[in-house]
Design a protein around this nucleic acid. Structure first.
Length: 875
RNA sequence: GGGCGAUUAGCUCAGCUGGUUAGAGCACUUCGCUUACACCGAAGGGGUCUGAGGUUCGAAUCCUUAAUCGCCCACCA
């Protein structure tokens, strides 16, 4: 027998198994015709990212399903990878250059991109390295990068195809401009924050008149782009002013007063300046009234030549100067303090400017239609399903997707312009006479490569290789996607659209939106708050399995998780308990050698445990199918701790001590149960179960529990009657212990106990278990008989089906006991009254199910019997 | 402004399609080194389920409404 280590040392064991698993390539997936497959693609973490607690939850969930399905005989393929994260990475690179006093222009595009690849080589895989610590069973041989050659080919193919279908077009639109990153960003990359600001009321005078209209603005610097002042046509105040013009306060020009429904009569003065180039709504108004759009701000948010004397000033500086000037000129009516939402780039933190520019767009309406259908028809299922509503709302109001970014790091748009004719050339390869063409300098939004992730990772490059690619054919569509709900539009919806467009098939069947992890006070984890514990530290301190178990245990489907580092004790303590249970079983084998007893048959206790095990197995299957992962861990936690350790092992101790016990037989049965438990737990705590399995089975090769079969449900072993008998026995034992505690009887002292059942049947039933009532109840003599006369020195407890008498040689605390009786009696009387009331209700008897009524009658009978006994004891 | 979710013991949460004298873990109290485990064992105390209406024989569970907290979407100068 191998030595069973007294303590589990996570770090060492985890490193060992992670290495063995990776080297023996057991998680590499192959095309196996005829064998069912289960495939998952990882949500590729950002190249610039580092592991946080959210990743732990997300990847543990994927690992649980991968391991579970693998143990159920599926060919499991879980593809890892990373995202090139356009804006973030460019930001990091530029910051690095800035530290050397350089800009990207000093390097030039080619060198800059090279620098990106160098950086990727050096740091890009950090997060995947960190993920290895978690013990994920991904197929490392299939690792992909959203900017690798294969992805690049696929991205170009999709772009060209959509362009040829007319779904990609170029247009001059107001986009969200990030002046720090100097690129367009999508709506989804913006955060709104409340900010205190000033609202400036400015007079626009009518020509040759003392009359004026007042408009309010928070951004006076854009007024050089004003091309109208608008009021609502229904607004009586302005009725008489049709066809009039006002004078621009700073530029000597007329601007028309126009009438448009968009203007809110009740807000401010009811008049609004229209600056089409710098506001989305103004742009729409401008289009309706054929107004000119004048862009007055440069890409780096300075005023341009339209601003006259203010040209070249940063907009925030210009704002102050312009206000001063307006004051001088007498055009400033007043300034109000207001709080409003301001848009910030979620990556750069800079204030986002609405900016008019040429960008590339994907027309989304047609792509969205089939994608809506598959989700509403249930072909793709969301968990929890309330996200379908959110999805529908967005998809029905979908807007065209701005896909061009003015960056260098990313997939450059496969568009070339003829140098002299300006003709547009779009193809996956450059034009032959490349010297006459210039490629569009922009790159594609990062999500343009992410949205084809589920099929591009399997080698999809174009519709041609679609047919011939065996991996793609076998593994697509994938089965499961676990992700955070905040990228439902950015990523999930778009993957569905791309999958349907290019594979004519959904990209995944089940989507699990995992919880958002918050800190102990419910605050979002954030760098600035410093409330996000480093998962590597936590894993180092408690073990990766402990963290995995804890985070899943705490994460209910659809709700947030409040995570505190010290909560990891839940998982750590559980693992220790599991470890020691195994250690106990193995320790006892030593005693088996000298033992020459005959083989024993399984007894009621074994049958009870088999029943509990299969019930647990049944629940596990349901929970995992319903994506209730916290329930999966919870039920195992309770099963192992309560049923297996607290009762089964405790009773086992008694059985082992019995004269002539079949020690080996008893332990073998326990060991088999324990191995089943290890397998049931393996998906969530892979390393410790692997280690224990090897110790227990004494396997020394590189075989793995993760390749074993998951325990199969045997419904025939479920025995509710026996389980309820055991519940009664447990209640009896608990009551005996209770009496002992109340009378301060030391553990070492055994007592004599008489159980007086109200019914013969009950007595017969429990007398089967008398040997362990005696031993774990610390009972010397146990009598179970209906007729028993009590002596003086005894303590009594009345249960629903029997009385318990415990002899005390010493003193019985009679006062305490009768106080207890009275209290109990009070409760029972109250209870019996509610039962009586219920049972005397005609309608209840008439309408409620028969079993329910009978159940209530039974309860009343028991309760009244208890009451009678108690009364006689008091009296 | 629109939508979604939450509100159950001191804390964190279970309680699925209405019928349990409302459960768990942590914390708390009192014992306890007993053939694994003090990261442990035993026994206990503690809540009427945010408020108000309603449906029902019966509601923590369904409906209406209010309050509080949180998230998402839109954004009015």
């Amino acid at each position: 027998m191998k030595e069973f280590p007294p303590k589990y040392i996570p770090n060492h064991t985890e490193d060992k198994w992670h290495k063995i698993w990776e080297e023996s390539k057991i998680y590499e997936a192959k095309v196996k015709p005829g064998k069912p497959k289960y495939s998952v693609v990882i949500p590729p973490p950002n190249i610039t990212g580092i592991l946080h607690i959210g990743h732990i939850l997300n990847n543990t969930i994927q690992d649980i399903y991968s391991r579970w399905k693998r143990m159920q005989g599926f060919e499991v393929c879980w593809v890892p990878g990373i995202d090139h994260a356009g804006i973030s990475t460019q930001h990091v690179l530029e910051r690095e250059l800035a530290a050397q006093g350089k800009t990207k222009h000093d390097l030039g595009r080619e060198k800059f991109v090279e620098m990106g690849w160098e950086w990727k080589k050096k740091y890009g895989g950090i997060i995947l390295q960190q993920l290895r610590k978690l013990g994920v069973s991904v197929d490392w041989s299939k690792e992909r990068f959203t900017l690798d050659d294969g992805l690049n080919t696929a991205v170009k193919e999709v772009f060209v195809d959509l362009y040829k279908k007319g779904l990609i077009y170029r247009g001059k639109r107001i986009v969200n401009w990030d002046p720090a990153a100097q690129t367009a960003v999508s709506d989804d990359e913006i955060e709104y924050k409340e900010k205190k600001d000033k609202l400036y009321y400015i007079r626009y005078y009518f020509r040759d008149s003392e009359e004026y209209v007042v408009v309010a603005t928070t951004r006076p610097e854009t007024m050089f782009g004003d091309t109208a002042v608008a009021v609502n046509p229904e607004d009586k105040r302005y009725n008489l002013l049709k066809n009039k013009s006002v004078i621009h306060p700073l530029v000597n020009k007329n601007i028309p007063l126009i009438f448009d429904d968009y203007v809110d009569i009740d807000f401010g003065t009811g008049a609004l300046k229209i600056t089409p180039a710098h506001d989305t709504n103004d742009f729409e108004v401008g289009k309706r009234h054929n107004l000119e759009s004048i862009n007055v701000i440069t890409k780096d948010s300075k005023l341009n030549e339209y601003a006259g004397e203010f040209k070249g000033l940063d907009i925030f500086v210009a704002r102050k100067r312009i206000v001063e000037k307006l004051k001088e000129l007498g055009n400033l009516e007043k300034i109000e303090e207001i709080t409003h939402n301001v848009a910030y780039g979620s990556k750069s933190g800079a204030v986002i400017e609405p900016y008019l520019s040429e960008q590339w767009f994907v027309a989304m309406k047609e792509l969205a239609k089939p994608a809506l259908k598959v989700v509403n028809d249930g072909e793709i299922r969301f968990h929890p399903d309330r996200w379908v509503k959110t999805y529908n709302h967005w998809m029905l109001n979908i807007r065209d997707w701005c896909i061009s970014r003015q960056l260098w790091w990313g997939h450059q748009i496969p568009i070339w312009y003829h140098n002299s004719t300006g003709e547009v050339y779009c193809a996956t390869e450059p034009p032959k006479d490349i010297e006459n063409y210039t490629q569009d300098p922009d790159v594609l939004d990062t999500w343009f490569s992410s949205w084809i992730w589920p099929f591009s990772v399997f080698g999809w490059e174009n519709s041609m290789n679609d047919e011939t690619n065996a991996e793609l054919k076998y593994f697509y569509p994938t089965d499961f996607l676990a992700t955070a709900a905040d990228i439902i539009f950015l990523w999930v919806a778009r993957m569905i659209m791309a999958g349907l467009e290019y594979k004519k098939e959904i990209p995944f069947k089940d989507v699990y939106f995992n919880s958002i992890v918050r800190d102990g006070q419910g605050r979002k984890m954030s760098k600035t708050l410093g409330n996000s514990p480093d998962p590597l530290d936590v894993m180092d301190k408690y073990g990766a399995d402990a963290l995995r178990f804890t985070i899943v245990y705490l994460a209910p489907l659809g709700n947030d998780v409040l995570f505190d580092e010290n909560k990891t004790e839940i998982g750590r303590n559980f693992i220790t308990k599991l470890w020691n249970a195994g250690r106990f079983i193995m320790m006892n084998y030593e005693k088996a050698d000298a033992n020459n007893s005959i083989e024993s048959e399984p007894d009621d206790l074994d049958r009870w445990m088999d029943s509990r095990l299969n019930n647990t197995l049944k629940d596990i299957e349901n929970y995992l199918c319903e994506y209730r992962l916290n329930d999966y861990t919870k039920i195992l936690y309770n099963f192992v701790w309560n049923d297996f350790c607290d009762w089964y092992i405790e009773i086992l101790k008694v059985k082992l001590l019995k004269e002539g016990a079949d020690i080996k037989g008893i332990l073998d049965r326990a060991k088999n149960l324990y191995i089943s438990i290890l397998k049931m737990l393996h998906p969530v705590i892979p390393v410790v179960t692997e280690e224990l399995w090897h110790i227990i089975t004494e396997l020394t090769d590189n075989s793995s529990i993760s390749l074993e079969n998951f325990p199969a449900l045997n419904k025939g072993q479920i025995n509710y009657e026996l389980e309820s008998d055991l519940e009664n026995v447990k209640e009896l034992i608990t009551s005996i212990r209770n009496i002992r505690t109340e009378n301060n009887i030391p553990y070492s002292k055994e007592c004599n106990v008489n159980i007086k059942p109200f019914e013969e049947d009950f007595g017969n039933n429990i007398s089967r278990f008398d040997y362990f009532i005696r031993s774990i109840g610390r009972v010397d003599e146990l009598k179970i008989e209906k007729t028993y006369e009590k002596f003086e020195e005894q303590s009594v407890k009345v249960l629903p089906k029997c009385e318990i008498y415990l002899s005390l040689e010493g003193l019985v605390d009679k006062e305490k006991q009768s106080a207890n009786f009275k209290k109990e009696l009070e409760n029972l009387v109250k209870y019996s009254e509610t039962l009586k009331k219920k049972l005397s209700n005609e309608k209840f008897l008439e309408k409620a199910a028969k079993e329910l009524v009978d159940g209530e009658k039974e309860k009343l009978k028991n309760t009244e019997q208890q009451i009678m006994k108690l009364q006689s004891l008091i009296g």
